[in-house]
């Protein structure tokens, strides 16, 4: 049997012998790779130079994270609880950053790539360090004044790191029995808990919403009832879909739902200029917090104003 010299294998030349002929792709430049290579590993590989304390991260957290995750990481509505938790071996385990996540790098990586939810990859490096530090602080894992940076990163100790082990399945062994395989006298038969299946799809009076937007008619069906929109409002519709709907579609964190006349009446009476000001600069209301531009600082003031017009005119 033909054998390759081990030196060739080590040099990676073995792979070339099976590679297809032809000219596919082009070299990726260092700058192109740097623009996309955002991943962070537990050993800190990939972390950019920067840093911030939990104290410095508190402001960005309150402005950009707390509306969903809560000021103490307790979670609003069904948004993830990220602090506290535990009882992993109990009947009602609570998996949070502090109680469950094995590596702090995961938190940095995830905040950087996917948060804030409506505006991913919009945070500065120092904001990511600060918010990461603050979430660790909310979990009593670092001090308020301690600075998280590319060098101190590996000092963070996560309590649950050693609790993970590689899959051991198949872990159960059933047999292909055909007769007397179970004792019917010992059967305990339990049916479904009432009211949890979303039968709203079939029955309107089930009390169960058929979509995340509640029982409002789907967009296409509502078309006939749409009011005539101003030019500003029409211009704002696409911004609304991309930037506002995440919260204002389902009424998250106290946000008035787009199209909900009663929720908007009191607000509209304050005048469009006030609403636009709140949307651009942020606003703390009784029921929730509107972050400046909903966290989408990439949007122009004009685009935000147009989106507000769309929401107001669609909610009359």
């Amino acid at each position: 049997m033909f054998k390759f010299p081990s030196a060739l294998i080590a040099a990676g030349l073995l792979a070339c012998t099976t590679a297809i002929a032809g000219d596919f792709g082009r070299a990726a430049t260092d700058a192109e790779i740097a623009g996309w290579d955002i991943d962070i590993r537990p050993d800190g590989k990939g972390l950019p130079v920067g840093g911030a304390t939990a104290e410095e991260g508190e402001g960005p957290y309150e402005a950009k994270c707390a509306m969903c995750h809560g000021s103490f990481g307790e979670g609003v509505d069904r948004w993830p609880v990220i602090a506290g938790g535990g009882d992993l071996d109990g009947t009602d385990p609570k998996k949070t950053v502090g109680s469950y996540w094995p590596y702090a790098s995961t938190l940095w990586d995830y905040i950087n790539r996917a948060m804030p939810y409506p505006a991913p990859q919009s945070l500065t490096v120092d904001e990511v360090y600060g918010i990461t530090a603050y979430v660790l602080y909310l979990n009593d894992l670092v001090d308020y004044e301690w600075e998280l940076n590319q060098d101190t990163f590996t000092e963070v100790v996560m309590p649950n790191t050693d609790s993970f082990f590689v899959d051991t399945r198949p872990d159960v062994q059933n047999t292909r029995c055909f007769e007397n395989c179970a004792d019917p006298a010992s059967f305990k038969i339990v049916g479904v808990i009432g009211g949890v299946s979303p039968t709203g799809h079939f029955k309107e009076d089930s009390g169960v919403a058929s979509s995340h937007y509640g029982d409002q008619p789907a967009e296409e069906e509502a078309g006939a009832e749409k009011v005539a929109l101003s030019a500003d409002a029409m211009a704002g519709e696409s911004v609304h879909q991309q930037a506002c709907l995440a919260c204002h579609g389902a009424g998250i964190a106290g946000a008035p739902k787009t199209g909900d006349k009663s929720a908007w009446e009191g607000r509209v009476s304050q005048g469009l200029a006030t609403l636009v000001d709140h949307a651009i600069n942020g606003y703390q209301g009784n029921n929730g917090y509107m972050p400046p531009k909903g966290g989408r600082m990439d949007l122009s003031d004009e685009a935000v104003a147009q989106a507000v017009s769309f929401m107001v005119e669609s909610s009359q």
Partner: peptide
């Protein structure tokens, strides 16, 4: 080595009764 990102640590790991968790439960 693996990256241990969110969807292979916080999620898509399988919590066992003893409080430990299986990881890389792919199949």
């Amino acid at each position: 080595q693996p990256w241990y990102h969110r969807e292979e640590t916080s999620k898509y790991t399988d919590l066992m009764p003893d409080g430990r968790s299986r990881k890389f439960t792919f199949v």
